[in-house]
Structures are given as C-alpha cells and as structure tokens.
Computed example of a mutant assay.
Amino acid sequence: MADTGGQAMHGEYKVIGGKLVVADLSVTDGRLADVRISGDFFLEPDEALGDITAALEGMAATADAVTLAAAIRRALRPDAMLMGFSPEAVAIAVRRALGVARSWRDYEWQVLDGIQTPAMHLALDDVLAREVAAGRRGPTLRFWQWDRPAIIIGNFQSVQNEVDMAACARLGVQVVRRVTGGGAMFVEPGSTITWSLYAPADLVADMDFGASYAFLDAWALKALNDMGIDAVYKPLNDIASSRGKIGGAAQKRYAGGAVLHHVTMAYDMDADKMMQVLRIGREKLSDKGIASAAKRVDPVRSQTGLERAEVMARMKATFTDLHGGSDGQVTPAELAAAEELAATKFTTDGWLHRLP
C-alpha cells in the first residue's frame, strides 16, 4: 500500500442483517493515519469509538483483517457493547478504504442459464469455478434448469443412509453426488430454483465461512423480500421463512482463488415423492416445514403467487441491479471439459458410492 500523503481514503461495509460501517483514513509512512470510523451502528459507551480509532491509528497498512480486528478487540474497554457491527466489520471497511478488500461492483459479472442433466450441472460447477480461479473466466452467476428428477447428495453423505435406491429406480429419479458438503436435495423439473455463484476469493477474503454464506445470499434474500416472502438467513446455510425452510446453500473453496456457492430453493415440490426416495427422519421433516407426507412444499409459489420463470426473472433483475452483470454463455471449451468430467466422475459408481 503506497503512502497517500494525507489524501483521504474512504471505504464502506454493510453488515448483513446489521448496520453500515464507514472508514475514512490516510496512509503515512506505511501506517494508518487520521482514522475516522462512522456509521449507523449502535455503540456504548460513547467513548468506545475512541478505543476503536486509537487501536487502528498507526497500524500497518498491510495488516490483514484478522490482525486489525484483534487490535480493536484488545483496545475496547470491557463494558463496550457493539450492536449491529463488529471489529471484523470495521476491519473490512478499513481494508476497503485501502483498496485491498473487494466488493461486488469491482467485478464484471456474467449471468448464465440453461438446462442440463444432473451430472452436467455438477460438472459445470467444478469446471466454471476452476476457470474463475485460473483467471480465464470472470465472476459468474448461473441458474440451473433440471431435465429430470434427481437427488443430489452432499460430498460427505452415505448413499445408503440418505437414499432409497429401489424407490429411485421405480420412480425414475437419478442419484448423483456433488463436490460440496451439506444435505441431500430432491429436485424435479419446475419444482426448484437452483443457482451457483463462481466468485473470486477476494470477494469474501476478510470473512469467515459463516459471514460469507450470509454475504453471498444477501441479494437473493432481497429479491425474495421484494416478492413478498418473509425470507431470512438462518445460520449456517439456510434460507427460511415463517413457514419453514425455503432452501439451503453449500460452498467449496478452490486453490488459486475462487469460491463455489450454490443454493437450491423449493418452488413447488412433491413431498410425498420426496419422502419415498429420501430416508428423512422426523426431525429433518420438521426442519423442512413439512406437516404431512401428502403436502406439497411450495413456499416460493404460495407466498409469491408467481410462476417459477417470473420468480427467476425477478431474481436475476435484483442481482444485476445490485451488483451489475450481463448475459453470458458457457464456452465450447468449458462445455467439452464438463462433458468429460461428467462421464469420468459424476456419472460413475465409484464417485457416487465413495461413501456407501
């Protein structure tokens, strides 16, 4: 970080579900100077704001977010109460002022959409994330369209514990394993809304896993709220409403610098069929907001009254309004790489039954 000779630098960070934190500062001899922290947060006692700025004054401009947050924590008086923000939030605002922490608008996003087989969707996730990590593709949002019913189990789940394979064969439901952790998903064409974000690691570099989930889902929550759904983020990885769980997210971090973050939400799901193919306990059923086997799980359809295509169109519009983005497409090389990966990994028994 070069010295700014007293020139003011400005950074902002909006805490997901919290308040705005603003950092104004300069850099002199490689150190933070003239630090001012402001925002619409709550802080008691008033003098604690001085503790925060004093902790930052003179810190190395190259300090990472963990170091900055730790310095703030050490400096805060014991009775300090931070409401709507945290030392980590202040650190992110400082690093944004320094130009070393990124925000959504620092990138040119592409938005993709298309129908594929379940194995191809999983293969595309891996291929596109690696392309972003390698710098050959810009950050991307991709919506999935399903060509058949499927169960997608988490990377670390047991097939026999999660899936009734005989029922799947009888009902024509394909079973595949993804590269991310988390629980099993049952999908049918037209029943779910699924998307993936392939984001540079720099976008969430100063956040722990929990904060990154909330951060990467915030645009979707706004879209759902704007459509009349009382959607909220439920740690660690769920999107929920007063009627129960709407969807769940999963992540994978790639060497070289990319984050795969994908989400599946229930639009209008056949709970009876889901219970036949998935081995779901009572506790998990309750978590999904399913009162009986005969009930359809339709939190998005019932709460919006909108067709699935319209919901997706509004979600895309919200994303581009907030973060920018233009229509893109999978390149022939990416498609060929995904086809090979689907054939050699995601459709094989060895991968599916890596955990019996």
Rank of each mutant, 00 (worst) to 15 (best):
E340G: 12
V127N: 05
L224F: 15
T180A: 06
L322C: 03
A338L: 00
L341I: 10
A201W: 02
D327N: 05
A93H: 11
L236Q: 07
R31D: 04
K295T: 13
S103Y: 08
T117K: 06
M59K: 13
D113W: 11
P299K: 12
V35R: 06
V94T: 12
A271F: 12
G256M: 09
L221P: 08
A231C: 15
G172P: 05
G324W: 06
G39P: 00
G172S: 08
D3F: 11
A220P: 00
A184C: 07
Y267S: 06
H323D: 10
A336E: 15
D349L: 10
A199K: 14
A89Q: 03
S302I: 09
W351T: 00
V163F: 01
R279W: 02
L82S: 02
S326Y: 04
E57P: 00
V15K: 11
Y267V: 03
K14N: 14
N161R: 15
E47L: 14
P78R: 15
P189A: 14
G84P: 03
T140N: 03
V330Q: 01
V66G: 12
L56E: 01
V35M: 02
A75T: 03
A91Q: 06
G289C: 05
R148Q: 15
A97Y: 05
G114W: 03
A61D: 07
A97S: 10
L221E: 09
H353P: 00
M59D: 02
I115W: 05
L216W: 03
G190W: 04
V66K: 14
S241P: 04
R253K: 12
